[in-house]
Amino acid sequence: MLLISCPHCGPCDETEFHCGGEAHVARPHDPAALDDAAWGAFIFMRNNPKGQFNERWVHAAGCRRWFNMVRDTVTHRILAVYPMGSRPPAGLGHLGAAVVEDAQ
Protein backbone atom coordinates (compact mmCIF):
# COMPACT_ATOMS: atom_id res chain seq x y z
CA MET A 1 0.00 0.00 0.00
CA LEU A 2 1.74 3.11 -1.23
CA LEU A 3 1.66 6.36 0.70
CA ILE A 4 1.37 9.06 -1.93
CA SER A 5 1.99 12.73 -1.27
CA CYS A 6 -0.73 14.63 -3.06
CA PRO A 7 0.75 18.03 -3.97
CA HIS A 8 -2.29 19.66 -2.35
CA CYS A 9 -3.48 17.35 0.41
CA GLY A 10 -0.23 15.76 1.60
CA PRO A 11 0.37 12.05 2.23
CA CYS A 12 -2.65 9.83 1.70
CA ASP A 13 -3.15 6.12 1.16
CA GLU A 14 -2.92 4.70 -2.33
CA THR A 15 -6.61 3.74 -2.13
CA GLU A 16 -7.53 7.40 -2.63
CA PHE A 17 -5.66 7.64 -5.95
CA HIS A 18 -5.95 6.35 -9.49
CA CYS A 19 -2.98 5.88 -11.75
CA GLY A 20 -3.37 7.31 -15.25
CA GLY A 21 -0.40 5.55 -16.82
CA GLU A 22 2.69 7.06 -18.34
CA ALA A 23 3.13 10.82 -18.00
CA HIS A 24 4.25 13.32 -20.63
CA VAL A 25 2.27 11.72 -23.44
CA ALA A 26 0.56 14.83 -24.77
CA ARG A 27 -2.35 14.66 -27.17
CA PRO A 28 -1.11 15.65 -30.63
CA HIS A 29 -2.27 19.12 -31.63
CA ASP A 30 -3.33 18.06 -35.11
CA PRO A 31 -4.32 14.40 -35.04
CA ALA A 32 -5.41 14.50 -38.68
CA ALA A 33 -1.83 15.30 -39.68
CA LEU A 34 -0.53 12.02 -38.25
CA ASP A 35 -0.33 8.80 -40.20
CA ASP A 36 -1.75 5.58 -38.78
CA ALA A 37 1.54 4.49 -37.30
CA ALA A 38 2.17 7.76 -35.49
CA TRP A 39 -1.40 7.95 -34.20
CA GLY A 40 -1.31 4.30 -33.17
CA ALA A 41 1.89 4.94 -31.25
CA PHE A 42 0.22 7.79 -29.41
CA ILE A 43 -2.78 5.69 -28.43
CA PHE A 44 -1.24 2.35 -27.70
CA MET A 45 2.51 2.46 -27.19
CA ARG A 46 3.77 3.09 -23.68
CA ASN A 47 7.00 2.52 -21.84
CA ASN A 48 7.14 -0.16 -19.18
CA PRO A 49 10.53 0.38 -17.57
CA LYS A 50 12.05 -1.58 -14.75
CA GLY A 51 13.07 1.21 -12.44
CA GLN A 52 12.14 4.86 -12.49
CA PHE A 53 8.90 5.68 -14.28
CA ASN A 54 7.05 8.94 -14.83
CA GLU A 55 3.37 8.39 -14.17
CA ARG A 56 0.20 10.47 -14.00
CA TRP A 57 -1.87 10.08 -10.87
CA VAL A 58 -5.10 11.69 -9.70
CA HIS A 59 -6.19 12.14 -6.11
CA ALA A 60 -9.53 10.67 -7.12
CA ALA A 61 -11.15 10.40 -3.70
CA GLY A 62 -9.58 13.62 -2.44
CA CYS A 63 -9.06 16.94 -4.21
CA ARG A 64 -9.51 15.35 -7.68
CA ARG A 65 -6.34 16.99 -9.03
CA TRP A 66 -3.99 15.31 -11.46
CA PHE A 67 -0.25 15.39 -10.90
CA ASN A 68 2.90 13.65 -12.08
CA MET A 69 5.00 11.25 -10.08
CA VAL A 70 8.29 9.41 -10.50
CA ARG A 71 7.95 5.94 -9.03
CA ASP A 72 10.48 3.14 -9.01
CA THR A 73 8.63 0.13 -10.36
CA VAL A 74 11.03 -2.24 -8.61
CA THR A 75 11.20 -0.80 -5.11
CA HIS A 76 7.88 1.12 -5.20
CA ARG A 77 9.75 4.09 -3.86
CA ILE A 78 8.26 7.43 -4.86
CA LEU A 79 11.07 9.72 -5.91
CA ALA A 80 9.22 12.86 -6.88
CA VAL A 81 5.79 14.43 -7.19
CA TYR A 82 5.47 17.40 -9.54
CA PRO A 83 2.68 19.40 -11.18
CA MET A 84 0.97 18.71 -14.48
CA GLY A 85 2.56 20.59 -17.33
CA SER A 86 5.99 20.78 -15.71
CA ARG A 87 9.14 18.78 -16.32
CA PRO A 88 10.34 16.14 -13.85
CA PRO A 89 13.07 17.19 -11.41
CA ALA A 90 16.49 16.94 -12.96
CA GLY A 91 17.90 13.44 -13.19
CA LEU A 92 14.68 11.70 -12.26
CA GLY A 93 12.44 9.56 -14.36
CA HIS A 94 12.55 7.66 -17.58
CA LEU A 95 11.39 9.65 -20.57
CA GLY A 96 11.71 7.15 -23.38
CA ALA A 97 11.94 7.65 -27.13
CA ALA A 98 8.29 6.81 -27.74
CA VAL A 99 7.17 9.75 -25.66
CA VAL A 100 5.56 12.54 -27.61
CA GLU A 101 6.92 15.64 -25.97
CA ASP A 102 4.54 18.24 -24.67
CA ALA A 103 4.76 21.09 -27.13
CA GLN A 104 3.45 23.69 -24.69
Partner: peptide
Protein backbone atom coordinates in the same frame (compact mmCIF):
# COMPACT_ATOMS: atom_id res chain seq x y z
CA UNK B 1 -13.34 12.12 -14.01
CA UNK B 2 -12.63 11.97 -17.73
CA UNK B 3 -13.82 15.55 -18.28
CA UNK B 4 -11.64 16.73 -15.40
CA UNK B 5 -8.69 14.82 -16.82
CA UNK B 6 -8.94 16.65 -20.15
CA UNK B 7 -9.56 20.02 -18.53
CA UNK B 8 -6.64 19.70 -16.13
CA UNK B 9 -4.08 17.97 -18.30
CA UNK B 10 -4.74 18.54 -22.02
CA UNK B 11 -6.65 21.81 -22.22
CA UNK B 12 -5.92 23.79 -19.04
Amino acid sequence: DWLEDYLQTEWP
